[in-house]
């Protein structure tokens, strides 16, 4: 029995060391609708394989930081990142570039939402009434669910979230934030506006229980980022080819995976506001 175990262990190590040669791999941060992620992104992979003429594969990840790690370790060469995760990834990989963003990502916003029991209503300015309430962010590494709301909270309420709120949680996900505020488990929360609008359409939101109380100013969010060294592996001009393939993606079915209206060009400089915000609240060293 022991011999079998040893043999299997050896095989295991051997299997793991076999690297895939020259497959172009991409990932996407887990964000909205995660059901049938593999199936939906497989279609995007098929589209890219056809357009680029190389073998393209999608691998799913579970968290924002897992996406960044896979990108950094060259297990994926292209990734659909959020604002903050993209900035983090590009700081870790020299020469990596933001090449395209969603049309909507040029002016993304975060919604502050509140349970009806708080009596808060939508206001133009920052809702000062949320002070001392219980508050939930989304995922710790999210731009719309963490970075931007925390920035505005610190600026307007003058302190770290755990000082200005009765309690602070991290729901881990935008849909979860909405569910938790709707049930009143948390009184106030911050969520991605696109997820909110989708859930409103899907009839999952009861307007008598939870409502939007503030919309943040716009900021740049999701984008496609590619590693700087892809041209070494896939030939000169590959970055440009990928960019064109993404910008030329106009099949509604494919775009629905993100979900975006279309993709437009982007550059690293577009995300300077995210870098500055991240540094100002200590999320980036």
């Amino acid at each position: 029995m022991f011999r079998n175990i040893f043999m299997t262990a050896a095989m295991l190590l051997g299997l793991s060391a076999a690297a895939h040669a020259d497959t172009f791999v991409f990932t996407a941060i887990p964000d909205e609708d995660e059901s049938r992620l593999q199936t939906r992104f497989q279609k995007v992979a098929t589209y890219l394989t056809k357009t680029l003429g190389v073998d393209v594969k999608f691998i799913p990840v579970k968290s924002y930081d897992a996406a960044v790690t896979a990108f950094r370790n060259d297990q994926v060469q292209l990734a659909w990142f959020g604002g903050l995760s993209g900035v983090r990834a590009r700081r870790l990989v020299d020469g990596s570039k933001a090449i395209a963003q969603g049309y909507e990502d040029q002016f993304f916003v975060t919604y502050f939402i509140a349970n009806a029991s708080t009596g808060l209503n939508e206001s133009k300015g920052f809702p000062m009434g949320i002070k001392d309430k219980t508050f939930t962010f989304g995922s710790k590494g999210s731009t719309s669910g963490r970075l931007m709301p925390e920035f505005h909270i610190r600026k307007e309420l003058g302190g770290a979230p755990d000082k200005v709120f009765g309690r602070v949680g991290f729901s881990g996900d935008h849909s979860r934030t909405i569910a938790l505020v709707q049930s009143g488990a948390y009184e106030v929360g911050a969520t991605n506006y696109a997820v909110w609008e989708n859930e409103v359409k899907a009839g999952k939101i009861d307007p008598s229980k939870v409502k939007v109380i503030w919309k943040t100013p716009a900021y740049p969010d999701y984008q496609w980022t590619i590693r700087g060294d892809v041209e070494k592996k896939f030939g000169a001009g590959f970055t440009e080819k990928v960019t064109q393939a993404l910008l030329g993606m106009n099949d509604k079915d494919l775009l629905a995976s993100f979900p975006r209206k279309s993709f437009v060009p982007a550059s690293n400089a577009d995300y300077q506001p995210i870098v500055d915000t991240g540094k100002s609240i200590g999320l980036i060293d």
């Binding site: 079998n4 175990i5 299997t8 295991l12 299997l15 793991s16 060391a17 076999a18 690297a19």
Partner: peptide, 25 residues
């Protein structure tokens, strides 16, 4: 116990072939 070697060999074939790892990492 008798089925264990069979299960283990099956398990090894089932495990995904990995994306590879580098010493640099």
């Amino acid at each position: 116990r008798k089925l264990l070697p069979l299960y283990l060999i099956g398990a090894l074939f089932a495990l995904p072939s990995s994306a590879g790892f580098s010493l640099d990492n």
